[in-house]
Write a protein that binds this DNA or RNA. Structure first.
Length: 658
RNA sequence: GAGCGGGUAGCUCAGUCGGUAGAGCAUCGCCCUUUUAAGGCGCUGGUCCUGGGUUCGAACCCCAGCCCGCUCACCA
């Protein structure tokens, strides 16, 4: 761009990005304003680029920001402000602007908070006021002046007075494209994800429907006060979520919270996690994202290729096997917080790239990790929310969307945990209406479980009528999926020999658990002792060879974390890997696909007894922010690229280049 | 991959029985020196997702497709 030209002609490519004639015209009008701003700057000796796209602005006092100003002067009276006349210079984005003849108000948004400006022609002088009149919604400006209160008591920065050496109003950057609705923000969920940059500075967190009673959600209320104090003087000292939640009625519905706040909170969660582990002597490490063998979990990997070495590589599906290599290497306590990639479906609970915390501790077992987990979640919640109470909508699969919308969020106390073995959980949540729940004995062997299932199905049919669909329809109230139901049916129909190997037996127990118990686990629950068949990396229980020392914890109806005493017998590990491979060949696509022989070798050098755990950070963030979709806690969730339907047009739309 | 819902101005949304396409905000012009979802007056802005079909006539009815959301499946 030539240096003395502020308003250069548009590059063709940019022009192609306009979505409409309206945007094109809008852009051209803003260009004309930029030219006028350049002309005003020239009068002050500024080159066009210095006037239109200056490269810095100094806040006064140095380091201050709008949130600080708001809290520092929250209780200052008009008289006190008048007496102080402290000079303040801040910059920000204009999110509201009102011109009133020879004066005007504007609202600046900076660091997530707003500050009103008052500009009078008499205070700033003619040229500066001319500049003010050229400002638009979305522009960035810097201002200097002193604080005052308006007639209605709002803390306001009065711009000016003009001094020869110091500008009172500095133009910083122009919004060349029209902004979303200044009041309701972006309502289009798709646009919120695709153009998160807009979502972040326009989202009020209150949808049109939800705004009727935003204060009914205690969590939202407290957040709104701390993040955007609309009436700081009225609320006095910040009220914590805890005091509100104990005195307010439960929220009627989940109100979407502002995107910015969610991601500020996400950062706080990561900070708290790191603090927790750092202060306990864990070393934060970074292991490879590019794996020759994508191990440590059962999932389809993303494939890629390294050109120089000419080898295929996979994005990692889990860091597990590398972290345990580090424990072999003598790092007794390690943790990693990083992305995993799984080439599988997207949903409100799944994004192809997601953030996982994994940590390993030598000389610990799964019992130690249960205690640690409770402590960790309690700690993080308190750090982030100042309370262990959170509200979350129960994601019951059987509820239709309409019911879900009207469903009251459930109050969850992250300081109160229960522990159930997987077998106990199945027994406890069994729907006993048509057939009796199993007893511990029934899980004792493949034969026992088979006998129980046959018996239970017979009972269920008789309790209803002979044509009743089948046992599992009743047992799980249709939450059992069709494919699984068929699987059960075929097992029962074909007899024990169809699944006499212990794998099938273990897998059926795990499936029963998922279908019967999982959705009930709203309050923090540790589910321990898993079948060996579904746990190829866990250590077997000494007294029960079909069961392993493993637990998962569930909050809000879904799994947040998974932990176990690590299998450290190299020969056993190799056998289990080979068995997984065998399962894979036999059509079980949940089994691991490839053996990491170097990992087996590493175990061969001796892994101490070790406990390890993985926690889904996105889901934890959902829980602590009351977000119902994982896309609300990931800044840029994966979306199908937008393509312009007009394929016959000679140039593609700007969006399609993403 | 399947089912349900949605797609109308830059944004948020109405749209009657199938009969010329609407509002608020934003934009543009004018007025207004304590407003605050400022206000007043006037204007501008549309591939009604796309492509077919029915019809004298389609935003609306039918068919196909695209995208998004939710649910299911897979998974954490």
């Amino acid at each position: 761009m030539p240096e003395n030209q502020s308003a250069t002609p548009l590059p063709d490519q940019f022009e192609a990005q306009f979505e409409s004639a309206f945007e094109q015209r809008f852009y051209n009008e803003r260009l004309e304003k930029l030219e006028k701003i350049a002309a005003l700057g020239a009068a002050n000796g500024l080159k066009p680029l210095e006037a239109t796209y200056p490269n810095s602005f100094r806040f006064v006092p140095e380091g201050i920001d709008v949130p600080q100003i708001r809290s520092l002067y929250a209780n200052a009276t008009a008289e006190e402000l008048e007496a102080q006349k402290a000079e303040i210079a801040v910059a920000g984005r204009i999110v509201a602007i009102r011109l009133q003849g020879k004066a005007g108000f504007a609202t600046l948004l900076q660091n997530g908070e707003r500050l009103q400006l008052y500009v009078r022609k008499d205070d700033v002088g003619e040229p500066t006021f001319e500049l003010y009149k050229l400002l638009d919604l979305g522009d960035h400006i810097g201002v200097s002046g002193s604080l005052m209160r308006t007639r209605t008591g709002e803390l306001t920065l009065k711009v000016g007075p003009a001094t020869p050496e110091k500008p009172t109003l500095t133009f910083l950057s122009k919004a060349m494209l029209p902004l979303p609705d200044k009041f309701s923000g972006l309502g289009d969920i798709e646009l919120r994800y695709r153009r998160r940059y807009l979502d972040l500075f326009t989202d009020t967190g209150e949808t049109a429907e939800a705004s009727s009673e935003p204060a009914t959600n205690p969590v939202i209320l407290s957040e709104a006060q701390s993040a955007q104090p609309k009436n700081p003087e009225a609320s006095g000292p910040a009220t914590t979520a805890e005091t509100i939640s104990t005195t307010s009625p439960e929220p009627a519905t989940i109100t979407r919270r502002p995107a910015r706040e969610v991601f500020v909170k996400r950062a706080a969660i990561l900070r708290a996690l790191r603090h927790f582990f750092d202060s306990r002597g864990y070393l934060e490490v970074e292991t490879p994202m590019l794996h020759t063998v994508a191990g440590g979990a059962a999932a389809r990997p993303f494939g890629t290729h390294h050109n120089a070495l000419d080898i295929p590589l996979n994005l990692r599906i889990a860091p597990e096997l590398y972290l345990k290599r580090l424990v072999v290497g003598g790092f007794d306590r390690v943790y990693e917080i990083n992305r995993n990639f799984r080439n599988e479906g997207v949903s409100t609970q799944h994004n192809p790239e997601f953030t996982m915390l994994e940590f390993y501790q030598a000389y610990a077992n799964y019992h130690d990790l249960m205690d640690l987990t409770e402590e960790l979640i309690k700690f993080v919640a308190t750090e982030v929310n100042d309370t262990t109470i959170t509200f979350f909508t129960h994601p019951n699969k059987r509820f239709s969307q309409q019911i879900l919308e009207s469903l009251a969020p459930v109050r969850i106390d992250l300081s109160k945990w229960q522990r159930l073995s997987m077998r106990q959980a199945i027994i406890q949540f069994w729907h006993g209406e048509f057939c009796q729940a199993p007893e511990m004995e029934d899980f004792g062997s493949a034969q026992n479980l088979f006998d129980f299932l046959v018996r239970a199905e017979k009972e269920a049919r008789e309790a209803r009528h002979p044509d009743a669909p089948d046992l599992f329809h009743e047992v799980s109230e249709a939450s059992l999926t069709e494919s699984k139901r068929q699987w059960f049916q075929s097992v029962i129909a074909h007899g024990l020999h169809a699944w006499e190997d212990d794998k099938q037996y273990g897998k059926i127990i795990a499936t029963l658990f998922e279908d019967i118990a999982e959705e009930h686990l709203i309050q923090p629950t540790i589910i321990y002792d898993f079948p060996l068949a579904v746990s190829p990396l866990s250590k077997v229980k000494p007294d029960e060879p079909e069961w392993v020392e493993r637990f998962e914890f569930y909050i809000g109806g879904f799994e947040i974390g998974n932990a176990f005493s690590e299998l450290n017998d190299a020969a056993d590990q190799l056998r289990r890997f080979e068995s997984q491979l065998e399962d894979r060949k036999n059509g079980d696509d949940e089994a691991m696909a490839e053996i990491d022989h170097d990992y087996v070798r590493a175990l061969g050098y001796g892994l101490p007894p070790t406990g390890g755990e993985g926690i889904g950070i996105d889901r934890l963030t959902m829980l602590l922010t009351g977000s119902r979709s994982i896309r609300d806690v990931i800044l840029f969730p994966l979306m199908r690229p937008q393509t312009k339907a007009t394929a016959q047009e000679e140039h593609t739309h700007g969006e399609s280049a993403e």
